[in-house]
Design a protein around this nucleic acid. Structure first.
Length: 938
RNA sequence: GGGCGCUUAGCUCAGUUGGUUAGAGCGGUUGACUUACAUUCAACAGGUCAGGGGUUCAAGUCCUCUAGCGCCCACCA
């Protein structure tokens, strides 16, 4: 059992083995248990198309730590897994796949295409799950849910119908974010704005009839002073960043206060290239300072202009096909791509002398979050959720602390968004997703199919509506959980379903309860057990996620939870940082700066990946990664492995077998054992607090430095000479065993592997109890005393190193302890120091009279004399001592001044003043000794 | 245009509610194959905590201003 321990830890031999073992034993399974507290995390469902990246690795490691920790603490801990159907992303992936066969989705037709997506999902959809298993994720896998499962879809439909019935879902024609490549509407969140280097084009719009200017109006560029002398105004200059939209202009607007244009309001312009007559209107929305102060109004292609259009009763001229080409309303530019048309239009304007100038202009435009195409603001009929009523309780829940964000600063981000929330466009013109439970009676609602302009099958019929707003006519619209047989109004059976599907996030926002099969009434057979599950685990405990999906998902889950469950979906939201490369760039495939977690796993091991990732993730700060970072984790695993080897090869299992729970009486323990026990439980206490506060990196680093620097470097070295003593056997075994438990959530595989080599009762470390704090063994005095002995040891090592005494050369050392208790400490532990500092002998002096031929130093409570007769650089030594003394003098001076300050004495707490006093006394003492040494050294 | 974060050792970063002489990992220098580990051990070097001003007995930590970097949000054509 012991001989097979190799010198190096080999993760490959353990990882798959133990994962299989855990799964086979159902250790990840959680069931409602009234005798235990529930702890539940729902996984942020990765896309079915997903491949594990560092963001997943970090996110899921944190969740696994929490789950394993709470499980060991005796809470019934459920980690609910699943995947997201990720409408657009998945559709894009499958479209790419069939493109290799030369097919478009339209060639297959809707049903065949959907079938292909399901096939694809069956074949590749479990990749990400397998990878999460590789990471060690202890999810309750048999519960795995998919947002397109039949039962999950029931929840989606239920929610749609309820919201519709409550008047919170409506259909209407609005300007939405349109991706011409994906050919679907997007929500505002799915169209993030990015800076682009654009231009501001100044275009002349001729007046139908020239007028004499009342003032030098009509010329607006401040620079143009030379050529400004038209006696008449025969045009107005407008500035635009998207000249191609001029084809859809139906007005030019100016500010009513703008003196330059006051006399022109109401006059008619001739829209160049199109020769449409358009009116000059006035509206306070227009910013006089921007551009020329005159703005072209394109109600069908700009959200602001849309509002102006409604307000002033303007025409809405749609000039674009859904794929971004211009339509028949664009005249000569018909069928050109929107950017191609821009060039052509500019060319033509220039030729006609109507392009006054072009300025470079930085602007930001929405980009499709799936394909990065520039978004087109596009007028179309879509479905929306009214958000304000849902937001109100969700704001309250965070404000009154029912939900807490960590780090706290995200609260503000959340509240800011919530308080300015806009209605949510939820219909998508793609095929992969939940069909809207909306049906139309062809008889009552003749126009319905025609107004769904974006539906791929519909013709690209241009939309030139005379005026708005459109009355939303609900007649003939049937929103229903099941397809109705006939129209409730007219009785017609000519009924068809809306072609659109729902935004993916419209299913994700139900995740914390839909994964528990809510609503139950639709599947009565399994109601009882499932209801119990939901009741027991909802609200869930913690949501762990990245900042970029606070709006997409977190905020919406809170709203859905409060609306449908009447309770928050989770109590804590832990937001971790974004994983970036070493230059601070976001890791992405296109940048080619990706570090693949699977590569790291095969090179360093899962535990190394997890530990390194966690230890460098400060709370909420972004993570900057390079591959070398994983060496620390690998080295730590190796260190643990080798410490275990040492212990196992020296452990007489009889010593610990029969009395696993027995501790020696405290008084009988030697100082090293007392010390390490005290340290372990001190550290454990901290670790508990840190995990509870989501400070995982600090917890991990605390365990690291305890194990490496205290347990291995000092403790094991101390007991090594007497490693066979029964007391040492029991304590070293105990500490190792408890430490492995505490480390298990961070490094599950190596801890399990070693656990099985130790004498043990439980079948797996992951079902062991989290170590209970033994407060009675925590003793700060012993910790201090031990530190003194370490201090002396270090001081001797330092002196040896200064005079280059070879390690194998044992030398005599004398110590003068300043007090009786110090003397006692040294006398009792002389052997220990002799060993640690490789001494020939350690003599305790009763006077600090300096022996001959020594170098010496002093630390708190002790003078240490190293007997050495060789040559040393006396000048250098004296300088070192002097420098030390000078520094100390400075410290003493500062402290003295502090103590002289009446304000300090009055206001500082007693313990601080006391500390200062002690500090001075000790400092003086040490200083005196240093000076003495300095003088004697010659 | 708002909001947030960062600036601490050569590099990458920790640093809870303000309280001894500011820490870690990596890197550097020196020495060591000490029978658990060279993925190791020991020792050393290295910091005006971005800059200015303020609050306080006490500031890396709180306030304010400035500079640089980064992120998020926003309908200025």
């Amino acid at each position: 059992m012991i001989d097979d321990l190799s010198k190096q830890y080999n993760p490959k031999e353990t990882e798959d083995k133990w994962y299989k073992f855990w799964e086979e034993n159902n250790f990840f399974s959680a069931r409602p248990d009234p005798s235990k507290r529930p702890f539940c995390i729902v996984i942020p469902p990765p896309n079915v198309t997903g491949i594990l990246h560092m963001g997943h690795a970090l996110n899921n490691t944190i969740q696994d730590i929490l789950i394993r920790y709470h499980r060991m603490k005796g809470e019934e801990s459920l980690w609910m897994p699943g995947t997201d159907h990720a409408g657009i992303a998945t559709q894009n992936v499958v479209e790419k796949a069939i493109a290799k066969e030369g097919l478009k989705r339209q060639d297959l037709g809707r049903d065949k295409f959907i079938e292909r997506v399901w096939n694809w999902k069956d074949q590749y959809g479990s990749t990400i799950i397998k990878q999460l298993k590789k990471l060690g994720a202890s999810c309750d896998w048999p519960r795995t849910r998919f947002t397109m499962d039949a039962e999950y879809s029931d929840a989606v439909i239920e929610v749609f119908v309820r919201l519709y019935e409550k008047g919170l879902i409506y259909q209407g024609d609005y300007i939405i974010n349109w991706c011409p490549r994906c050919q679907t509407a997007l929500s505002d969140e799915e169209a993030p704005h990015k800076e682009i280097h654009g231009a501001l084009y100044y275009i002349k719009y001729p007046l139908k009839e020239s007028t004499v200017p009342a003032s030098p109006a009509g010329r607006h560029s401040p620079q143009s002073t030379v050529d400004r002398r038209p006696s008449t105004v025969d045009y107005i200059v407008v500035a635009t960043t998207r000249p191609e939209t001029m084809l859809g202009d139906t007005a030019v607007a100016v500010n009513p206060k703008d003196k330059r244009y006051k006399h022109l309001v109401g006059k008619t312009l001739i829209l160049p290239l199109v020769n449409r007559e358009i009116e000059i209107i006035s509206d306070s929305m227009v910013d006089m300072k921007f551009g020329t102060g005159a703005v072209k109004v394109t109600p069908a292609h700009d959200p602001n202009d849309y509002n102006l259009g409604l307000k002033h009763g303007l025409k809405f001229v749609n000039i674009m096909h859904p794929d971004g080409r211009l339509n028949e309303n664009a005249g000569d530019y018909r069928d050109m791509d929107r950017f191609q048309a821009r060039e052509a239009i500019l060319e033509d304007l220039k030729e006609k002398g109507l392009l006054e100038k072009i300025e470079t202009h930085e602007l930001s435009a929405g980009h499709c979050y799936r394909c990065h195409t520039i978004i087109e603001p596009y007028l179309s009929k879509q479905w929306f959720v009214k958000m304000k009523p849902l937001a109100r309780p969700a704001i309250d829940a965070v404000k009154n602390g029912k939900i807490k964000f960590s780090p706290r600063r995200w609260t503000k981000v959340y509240l800011n968004w919530m308080e300015n929330i806009q209605d949510w466009c939820i219909s998508r013109q793609i095929w992969w997703g939940h069909r809207l439970p909306v049906y139309y009676c062809r008889n009552c609602h003749k126009q319905a199919s025609e107004s769904t302009v974006n539906s791929p099958q519909t013709t690209d019929k241009a939309k030139a509506v005379d005026c708005g707003p459109w009355t939303v006519d609900n007649k003939g619209i049937i929103v229903s959980r099941v397809k109705p047989d006939k129209c409730p109004d007219c009785g017609s059976s000519d009924i068809y379903q809306d072609e659109d599907v729902l935004d993916t996030w419209f299913s994700s926002w139900l995740w914390p309860f839909a994964t528990f099969y809510w609503p139950f009434d639709r599947r009565p057979s399994t109601v009882d057990r499932r209801q119990q599950d939901l009741k027991y685990f909802y609200p869930t405990s913690v949501l762990v996620t990245a900042p970029e999906i606070i709006f997409f998902w977190v905020a919406r889950m809170i709203m859905a939870g409060l609306e449908f469950m009447k309770d928050v979906p989770f109590r804590d939201v832990y937001i971790h940082g974004t994983v970036r490369d070493i230059e601070g760039k976001k890791m992405s495939k296109s940048l080619g700066n990706v570090i693949d977690p699977l590569d790291v796993i095969s090179e360093y091991g899962v535990d190394a990946l997890r530990f390194s990732l966690i230890s460098i993730t400060a709370q909420g700060q972004d993570v900057f990664l390079s591959k070398e970072r994983f060496e620390q984790g690998r080295n730590f695993a190796n260190k643990i492995w080798n410490a275990a080897r040492l212990i196992l090869t020296n452990l007489d299992q009889e010593n610990v077998k029969n009395d696993l729970c027995e501790f020696f009486r405290k008084e009988d323990l030697n100082i090293a054992n007392r010390w390490i026990l005290s340290r372990f439980y001190s550290v454990l206490q901290e670790v508990n607090n840190l995990i509870d506060a989501f400070r995982f990196n600090e917890a991990a680093n605390m365990l690291y430095s305890f194990f490496w620097h205290e347990f291995c470097d000092w403790y094991l070295e101390i007991i090594k000479p007497e490693i066979k003593s029964r007391q040492n056997q029991v304590v070293m075994f105990k500490i190792l065993e408890k430490f492995l438990r505490a480390l298990h959530p961070f490094m599950p595989f190596i801890t399990e592997e070693i656990w099985h080599k130790l004498p043990h009762e439980e079948s797996s470390i992951m079902v062991c109890a989290w170590p209970h704090i033994q407060e009675q063994v925590i003793d700060k005095r012993f910790e201090k005393e031990m530190e003194s002995l370490f201090g002396i040891t270090k001081l001797i090592r330092n002196l040896r190193s200064q005079v280059e005494i070879r390690p194998e050369h044992k030398i005599p050392v004398s110590i003068f302890p300043h007090t009786k208790s110090h003397a006692k400490l040294i006398q009792e532990n002389a052997g220990l120091i002799e060993n640690l500092a490789r001494l020939d002998s350690l003599k305790v002096l009763d006077t600090n009279k300096r022996p001959l031929a020594v170098i010496s130093d002093t630390i708190e409570g002790f003078d240490v004399y190293l007997h050495f007769s060789g040559l040393i650089d006396i000048v250098q030594e004296r300088e070192k001592i002097k420098a030390k003394a000078d520094k100390l003098r400075g410290v003493i001076k500062v402290k003295k001044e502090r103590l002289k300050n009446p304000e300090f004495l009055k206001k500082a707490p007693a313990e601080i003043t006391e500390k200062e006093k002690q500090g001075i006394a000790q400092g003086k003492n040490t200083l005196q000794r240093l000076l003495k040494m300095h003088d004697e050294l010659r």
